[in-house]
């Protein structure tokens, strides 16, 4: 199938619009990160008089692992988000499979309850959660953040995966079971690969949720033991008590986006794996 130049130019134009829409504010953030307190308010993308500076980035890494305001939180963010995502996907896959494919009473309650939990304003829950975690000893620990992240991302993960599992034809499972496989083997060998797009979609959503969270991070941590980047941003200082550390925060935001880019780049190809022709037809 030869594609005409009209098609190419139409797509090029569409892609240009998409890139512009997505990346213009990012370019603005990058430009803020390269400005000094002198030029931060000049409203331009390129600082006047060529006053670029990499100081905002340098400051983030000054002091090494222990004293820099940024390195330890960055590692915390990566570790916590990865662990929470892995656990969430496993738990959600089990639950979603059960809800989509099996028959048992209480399905609607679980689904409805999961939704209700995700909907309750978090601001009311962080006070009691703070007290709970301090008495149990989970305060300022990885687990102390991972558990709430699971709680609030599971509903979306479950709903997404349920919508996916329902799309997979029933015959496949029955065929596997006729061949003697247990429900679990049917799940692992047949369903899971076909649900890959949904699984990776859910993984990206959970990861980004954990990555971006501020409320739990600032409430349930008190030191760099478990503090993640969004919370660490609240501790950045500018030149004085009253000056906003705009450049530093922008620089931190740029760096913190790089793992996201890597994560997404890695997973996006697997989102559109799609249903293989052989398994579906018939």
């Amino acid at each position: 199938m030869r594609r005409g130049t009209r098609e190419y130019s139409a797509w090029s134009f569409a892609m240009l619009l998409v890139l512009l829409f997505s990346l213009l504010p990012i370019v603005w953030i990058i430009s803020l990160s390269l400005k000094t307190p002198k030029t931060v308010g000049d409203g331009r993308f390129l600082p006047a008089g060529g006053e670029w500076t990499l100081k905002n980035y340098k400051v983030l890494f000054e002091g090494g692992f222990d004293n820099s305001p940024f390195i330890h939180p960055l590692i915390n963010s990566i570790a916590i988000a990865l662990i929470a995502t892995a656990i969430a996907i496993v738990l959600a896959a089990f639950a979603a499979y059960a809800i989509a494919r099996l028959n048992f009473p209480g399905k609607s309650i679980i689904l409805g309850g999961a939704l209700a939990i995700a909907m309750f304003p978090a601001i009311s829950t962080i006070g009691p959660l703070f007290d709970m975690w301090r008495s149990i000893g989970l305060y300022d620990t990885y687990l102390g953040l991972i558990i709430p992240y699971l709680t609030f991302s599971l509903p979306l993960a479950i709903y997404t995966l349920v919508a996916f599992y329902r799309e997979i034809p029933w015959d496949l499972e029955q065929a596997a079971q006729v061949d003697g496989a247990t429900p679990f083997q049917a799940f692992r060998r047949v369903i899971l690969p076909l649900a890959a797009p949904g699984t990776f979609t859910a993984a990206i959503l959970v990861f980004i949720f954990c990555w971006n969270d501020f409320l739990f991070a600032i409430t349930l941590t008190s030191s760099n033991n478990a503090r993640t980047v969004p919370a660490a941003l609240a501790f950045f200082t500018g030149e004085s008590q009253f000056t906003q550390p705009t450049g530093n925060i922008a620089a931190a935001a740029v760096i913190v986006t790089i793992p996201i880019i890597i994560f997404v780049l890695f997973f996006q190809r697997r989102i559109v794996a799609g249903l293989t022709a052989g398994a579906v037809k018939g």
Binding site: T36, K38, E239, S240, Q241, F242, T243
Partner: peptide
């Protein structure tokens, strides 16, 4: 503004 404005202007403008 507070007293910091003096040092800030000295450094930035």
């Amino acid at each position: 503004n507070y007293t910091f404005a003096y040092a800030s202007a000295q450094a930035n403008a």
